[in-house]
Nucleic acid binder design. Sequence first.
DNA 1: GGATTGCGCTTGATCGATTTACTAGATCGA
DNA 2: TCGATCTAGTAAATCGATCAAGCGCAATCC
Lengths: 346, 346
Amino acid sequence: MTDDTNGDLKAPSKVRLIEVAQEAGVSRSAVSLALRGHPSIPKRTHARIQDAARRLGYVYNRGAANLRTASTQTVGVVVHDVTNPYFAEIVAAVQDEMTLHGRVILFGNTQECTTRQAEFIETFREHNVDGLILCPAAGTQADMVADIQRSGVPLVLFSRDLPDADVDYVGSANFEGMQSATAHLIGAGHRRIAMVGGNTDTSTGRDRLAGYRAALGDAGIAEDPDLIVEGPATRDFGMRTIRALTTREPELTACVCFNDVLAFGVMLGLRADNKEAGRDFSVVGFDDIAEATLWRPALTSFGFSRQELGRRVAEMLLRRIAEPNSPPKRIILNFELRSRESVRAR
Amino acid sequence: MTDDTNGDLKAPSKVRLIEVAQEAGVSRSAVSLALRGHPSIPKRTHARIQDAARRLGYVYNRGAANLRTASTQTVGVVVHDVTNPYFAEIVAAVQDEMTLHGRVILFGNTQECTTRQAEFIETFREHNVDGLILCPAAGTQADMVADIQRSGVPLVLFSRDLPDADVDYVGSANFEGMQSATAHLIGAGHRRIAMVGGNTDTSTGRDRLAGYRAALGDAGIAEDPDLIVEGPATRDFGMRTIRALTTREPELTACVCFNDVLAFGVMLGLRADNKEAGRDFSVVGFDDIAEATLWRPALTSFGFSRQELGRRVAEMLLRRIAEPNSPPKRIILNFELRSRESVRAR
DNA sequence: GGATTGCGCTTGATCGATTTACTAGATCGA
DNA sequence: TCGATCTAGTAAATCGATCAAGCGCAATCC
């Protein structure tokens, strides 16, 4: 079997419908219909044809089919960073759902570069994708979305909103989520609460900050600009920030963080000063990444299911492909409290 | 231009070569040749044609072209888990390199399921990919590789080796790497060293375990089966394992981990028992993922560049596509020590 | 008994590009 | 001035499937 003295030595994958037809003693069309399970071909013939196809090692040529049919059964997925587990999880979920519907994914990773993003979209259009799923790179203009829509390619955006675009979108309730997170601390008796990290360059950052402010306002707590520290979402920044803050603000008893990574930094920073989250200070994270459970103390966080988001995105695109002219829809997933050990009532 | 009071109102993407030809006053062939920069079309005509194409918003239809040409300019990439940053980084690197060569990626995530894997490969073949890149799911048989090869589709495997397959492969020196990692601890004065995680289902697991054993042997340290704990590569498993081990084995002063994720779990587990890596216990990770630097204490690990691996995989596939009959090649990348804070000499 | 319908297929056109073979006219060398 | 070569294209065949239209025969209907 591994030696190729002779064997059938089937010519590598050059079997076409017509060869199968000859083998089965029918016409091309009969084979085409049979293989796609058309009812006009009776069972016996169908079996005979399928047998012939198997014998010859026939491989369906979708490229050829696509030339006649409308759909290519492909969709483009463009994200800005698969290396980030948040997006990897979403891509995986989209992939799952699309596979379930027999579609294949053309994948593009833009690395936050709008030029690359435009190239992927262009190439995917040349490949005739049935639709596009996109988390726009920072700096994406709303009119590029309009361009895609005008060209007639179904499009769904996720996670990052584009203010002026009238388009299908699946995202999360950043404002309400951060509002709840802050309210959670207020409910636990805290009054001086810092907001660590995030910035106003993206809708995500703006919305979360606004949620924090709203919660303070609701509770009648005056906002103190000194307690809002914008910055990168890194462990290191969280660590430095909390040490500076607690030194400067002895009354501070809690903080909300733009995301979990910052919260881990905060917890490390506290420990460096011999304080412990959940005992001497309360910390709430955001996004509920996998690590949140495993940390000691386990991090209280607000999160939503990335898997659900991915699934929803896929479903939404399939719907738009089916009904290209239905009005744009928005789905916003809610954050839920995952209460753990890093918060203490006072 | 942005307002569509009337304007050209271009029929969504139904512009074909022939329309461009009419617009430019030449034949279909001339347009085809011009757009691909064929020298027989002079500059002036070329410009006129390109102008016409732009005016009409022509989109190249690769599907149609593929029917005539050999190549589809697509390659399939199948991994078992994008959610794992290790693979995400490789996928991103492969993507980059392929984009550089004008190729697009069909992407499949198998979730370690050989059935899904087979489906992806089948579908990708129907889509006429020029080649396949695969990190085989656990339990993949060597003859499925042989099947793909027989069918004439260029194939490159990475990261996980398939013992009996005679195929292009890019991987890492797992044996030597783990041997160095263990030797590193021995060099720091440790004698009782555990091996946490990994299993013998994959070549990776077997090789790393063998490397650990070899290093012990080289140093004349007797192997203790109680110190070898196989298991899944999760934070949680690392955490539980180290707690059990340190309770049971008071003499234990260090461990090597199958990968960094396990090492993080080990560090968390130590902390849960009021021990600290780098002070009370020494931990060496494996793979050197991005997080290793960010952790406190920063994790000492052995790694190689995933970007390089991805690039090499892509290059190797492109080479095989160009020379389908060249003998299979293997590239093995070496692990390098990234010494940080989680190891302490004694 | 003639018309209609249904079954199980086939024929031939077609999708939108590429490619081979060819040609009208210009240029050139002898 | 004649044949050869070059230039700038064109016409037609082709890739491998799909699909609309149709065909021969038998069964059914009125």
